[in-house]
Every structure is written in C-alpha cells, then in structure tokens.
Design a protein around this nucleic acid. Structure first.
Lengths: 337, 337
DNA sequence: CCGATGGTTTGCATCGTTGTAAGATCGTCA
DNA sequence: TGACGATCTTACAACGATGCAAACCATCGG
C-alpha cells in the first residue's frame, strides 16, 4: 500500500498534521522538523493522495479538453498546445473525443466524468442554438470556436468570417476569378463552415464576382478523404475553376492530391489555399498556402480564460469572446501573383 | 453547490445510503423506492462526486497516456485510438507529453499526478537500461515500444527489426541497391531507431549489399523538418542513392519534399518508403509506400493489457510482450517493381 | 519569576462516498 | 398469533487529506 500522511508522521515522530503542513509549505514549521519530515517522506516515497486532497479542497488539478478527434491534425496540434499550457499552470489534461457528434457533445456536458476536472474546454461542432440551455452549466466552461449563437459562455477563436474573406481576397488579388470552395456543410447550423462560406461570398461580392453554387463542394468531417471526395465531385460535374479554397488544410491537401492525379497543375492551372497552417502544409508538394489561425495563442488563451473562471471571481464574470489574429502564409500552391 | 447523496436522500425521504444503493444498482431495493430516488436524482441533477468515490474505492476510473508529443502525427493517431479504447472500457484518459526527454519521462514516473489515475501507458524515448529501477513502479504500467532492455514491464509493440528488414527487402526486391536511411539516432541507446537500423543492415547483408555509412542520415526527433534536414545532408554530401527508407512517415515526407525540390523524381530517380502509415501518407504526392505497424491493434492491446494489470490479479502476472503484425502498404513512392 | 508574545505543533471536524453489519419490515407458515 | 426467513433500509466507520482553533513552548520584558 502507498504511504499516507500517518505513515510519514509515525516515522518522523510528529503528528500527521505537521506532515501536511510541511507538504503544503505552511509557513510556521521549524527547519529541523521540516527536514526530519522531508527525510521520512523521501524514505517512504510518500505521494499525496489526490483523490483525498480534491475531495477536501474541491479542486482536482485537472481540466478536460473535448475535441472532435485527435485524428484530425488541427485538433492534435491544438491539443498539444493546450496540454502544454495547462501543464505550465500545474494542471493535467484529460482528453475526450466527441466525433463532432451533437449527442456525444451533449452527453459529455452532463457526464459525471467531468466531476473529475475543474473545468472544460470544448470545441463543439454538432450543437446549435437549441442547445443553449445545455451549455448553461454549473462548472467552468470555455468554448473554442466562434460565438454565432447566443450561448452563455466564454469563446476563444479567430474571426472565421474575416479570415475567409481575406483568404478569398488573396486569391482574387492573385488574378483568380473562378474560385471553388470545399467544406461547406449545411448540417452545421452556424459553425466555422458557415462562417467561412459567408466570408468567401462577401469577398466575391465585394469584387463583383458572382457567387456560383456549382463551385461549392460539401464535406462534413474534414479529413483528407473528404477533401479528395469533394474534389472528385467538382471534377465529375465539370466545374470550371482556377482556384480552390479548402476550409481547412486537410481538405485542401486531399483536394490537391486529386487535382494532380487528374493532370491539373498546382498552382498553374489551379491555385490551392488552405486553412490551419498544419506542420504538414509546409512540406506538401507543392507547399500549401494557408491561413494561420493563431492556434497556439488560442490554446494558451483558452487555458487562461478557463483558469479565470475556475478562480475565485469566476462566477461573476460576464461571457467574453477573445479573438486571435490570423495571417495568410504564402507558399507555392497559391503564389501572390 | 452540487447536490450530494444527502440532498437526494432528503428530497426522496430515505437515508443517504439507500440513494447510494440505487446509484450503484444494489440488488435489494424496492422498485417503488428506487423510482422515488431516481426522480429525486433527476430533479436535483445529482452526479456522484468522483473524488469521494475514488478515495473510498481506491479506483479513479482514469488512465494516463504519456507520449513524446501530440504534434507528431503518429502519436496523435495512437492517442486517438487509446482514448477510444479506454472510453469503451469506461475509462477516461489523461494525456501527458514528455518531449521524448529522459528527465521528463523519469519525473513523470515519480509524479504525484499519476495518483489521479489507475495506471499509465508510456511511450518512452529517452530512457535506457540504467533506468530499469525507475520503471519498477508500484502502479500498473504498460510500455509502448520494444523490450530491448531488461525492463520489468509489459510491452506492446510490433517488431521493429522484422518490419525494417521487410521494408528494406521490399526496396531491394524492387531493384534498388543504394538505399539511404533517415532517422538514425545514436543517442537513443536501443529504441526504434536502433532496431530499425539493425533490420536495415541485416536485410542488406542478407542480399550481399555492403553497408555504407554515407547513406545513413541522422535525425533526433522525427518531424517533417528533421526529415528535410537529413535529406539536405545527404544531398549536400553528394551521397549516391536510388531509394530512401525513412524511419517514419514524417521523416520520409520531409525528405520527399526536399528530393523533389532538388529536381529528383520520386519514384523514378529515388524510391521513398516510410513507416507508420499515417492518414497523410495516402494523400501525399506521390502517395507514400509505408509500413503499417498495426497502430490500432497496439492501442487496443495496450489498454487491455493495462486493464489486466489494474485488475485483481494484476500484481501476479509476469511481464509480457505483445507483438502486433505489420504490413507493407504499396503506394506510388515505391512501387513493387 | 510571571504573564504576555508569537512562533510551532496538534486535535478535531469535515469533504462525499462505499462496505459491513445490524435493524426494520413484510409475508408466510406452523 | 408469533416466530422465522427474506427482503429492504439504516447506522456507523472508514478512505486520506485540509482548515480551524486550541494547546504548547520558548523567549522576553517588567
């Protein structure tokens, strides 16, 4: 059995409360006592029982991060940053996968598993306005992704609309006029897909380019395979385009692969622009021009925001929205001109 | 404040222990009582306090997974499978990143943070024979990666040596004779890098091809950037090769990118073979021939093995090694002939 | 030499749950 | 009707830690 405060106390010849004081860095402990206790701790290899500690203190020292899937590189890289940021704050991170499924997202919010943590960072995909009540929870919660619904929570994100607008404008500025998009998803009531589509449309409009539905390809989950499938759709229906804007990098990469299989040259025949700036994007062939959404900032800020909620005054704060800056990274698949 | 057993008991007009019995599906509870209690539970939105439960029961319902980085796609995909397998067993997963750093791996094994979990799945990278003692821990521990040291733990892996041997042979069978490798790392005393190098050498030897140090490029961490750097090294030093075996897919992809930048055609001038079968590999241009190490099997088996250790008889089991089957997936970057 | 002072140590109650054992209730049978 | 199991419910003691308040003990000034 693992050693307890009592065991250490017996060995050191003090009361177990004194050991607790040493462990917690209580100010008034005589140096000689402290040293004796510390020796006993080392000898027994004592480690505090975190269940007991959190039962007593009400804090667990863990946060939960819920993303659709770690298989999606964007979320893997995001999770990596979140875990690192949490660790810096002395917290461990419990990772859940929702599959982007509304029911699983809702179930998670009600799950007793969350009682194991001090708060949740959730990247919702399936939920909509009708789920606002489910999001009005008693524990600290920070949402990743834009505040498009009237949800009572903190949000950390970048402006999907502005970024998509800028990306589209970038393609227009480079001389492209028939710009296809991949990733539209009408099931998603108002998430990134919808916002990015809106940004795309507004940019077209601002430049007097008509919106053409035949250039819009849908994709529900954003894997490479979905991007490939969408590009096949576009090609099969004989769509005529000189650029593709993928709503994320994996879609764009899947599409780029199909383009080249079809004998089209990137960027000569078709420029390709992605969204996320995955590590992979820089090493694709050709390398992928993409939107850098400030992933690391988002991760760090999400953890900070959650910590504020967890803190003493967390309950009193009004819901906040924090926006990251985005940048367009120029690479080979869509040169500036 | 969240509701407790007491609150529910008051509302339902029973003792708090009866509520506990209902929650735990205790057999002898009158249906009418059960129903009354369940209504009270629903009304108050009662959720058991997991800290208290695990203090009492000694089980936390969580496992820890420690990998070098989630940024590395292999580990992201692995983590995804581990989390899913754990969830099926009703466990949540806490993810730690070690950076492949020996000190952080050792620190993790001693960390009180682990008391929050029932066991650990660790993918060690920096540790060696001298750390055997540190691995002789009191909690359930399963290691990912091959048992090359005399470590007192369960191992789940595939045969790095056989897989690398087969991969090299595949290239030889396709007519290549000057096969470079990327990923050698002499710091790593006896991990995957060393084993894969050994497999490579043995395959060469079996076919009477001399081992040529100038064809061996090192890389410590296995990011795309490291693969790119290694390939630059090879090209800069004028190495003469007609194939490259990357010790993982990201290395291979980074290298492939540099090859094509240098005007070399893949696979005509240089065949490229990777290791891991990332989702990405199928969509690279050209698509990447690679070794599928049975990642999902490894993840599932690691969780199962850990559960056996956690179980009643876990302490009595001798250390086991479980080997996954690997397959070579033929794609464009290295056709069979 | 005593009480005040302030640092140092301790005892007790408590967090919310579960296991054990004992108590209450009920129907059944002699 | 009363005793007796069987079924249902309850009381109590942990699990290991922390917070509070009280107790202890030097040291110092008067």
């Amino acid at each position: 059995m693992a050693a307890t405060l009592h065991d250490v106390a017996n060995l050191a010849g003090v009361s177990f409360k004194t050991v607790s004081n040493v462990v917690n860095g209580h100010p008034h402990v005589r140096p000689s006592t402290r040293e004796r206790v510390e020796r006993a701790i080392a000898e027994l290899g004592y480690k505090p029982n975190l269940s007991a500690r959190s039962l007593r203190s009400g804090r667990t020292g863990a946060i939960a991060l819920a993303v659709p899937e770690l298989n999606l590189s964007y979320f893997a890289e995001l999770a990596s940053f979140v875990i690192a940021a949490a660790e810096q704050a002395g917290l461990v991170t419990l990772v859940e996968q929702t599959g982007g499924d509304r029911d699983r997202e809702l179930a998670l919010l009600k799950s007793p598993r969350l009682r194991m943590t001090d708060g949740l960072i959730l990247s919702p995909l399936g939920m909509g306005q009708e789920d606002a009540d489910a999001l009005d929870v008693a524990f600290p919660l920070v949402l990743l992704g834009e505040r498009t619904f009237d949800w009572p929570n903190d949000h950390v994100t970048m402006s999907n609309l502005n970024a998509a607008h800028a990306a589209t404008e970038y393609l227009i500025a480079s001389g492209r006029r028939r710009i296809a998009v991949i990733g539209e998803n009408e099931d998603e009531v108002m998430g990134s897909a919808r916002l990015r589509l809106r940004g795309y449309r507004e940019a077209l409009e601002a430049h007097g380019i008509p919106y053409d539905e035949r250039l819009v390809a849908r994709a529900t989950l954003w894997h490479r395979a979905d991007g490939a499938r969408a590009m096949h759709d576009l090609l099969d229906r004989g769509a005529d385009f000189d650029a593709v804007f993928g709503f994320n990098d994996t879609l764009a990469l899947g599409a780029m692969r199909v383009l080249q299989e079809a004998g089209l040259r990137v960027p000569e025949d078709v420029a390709v622009l992605g969204f996320d700036d995955l590590d992979e994007a820089a090493y694709a062939i050709p390398s992928l021009t993409t939107v850098d959404p400030g992933r690391e900032w988002i991760a760090r800020t999400a953890v900070e925001t959650l910590l504020e909620r967890i803190g003493r005054k967390g309950k009193d704060l009004a819901p906040r929205t924090k926006l990251a800056d985005f940048t367009i990274i120029e690479r080979e698949s869509a040169p500036k001109d």
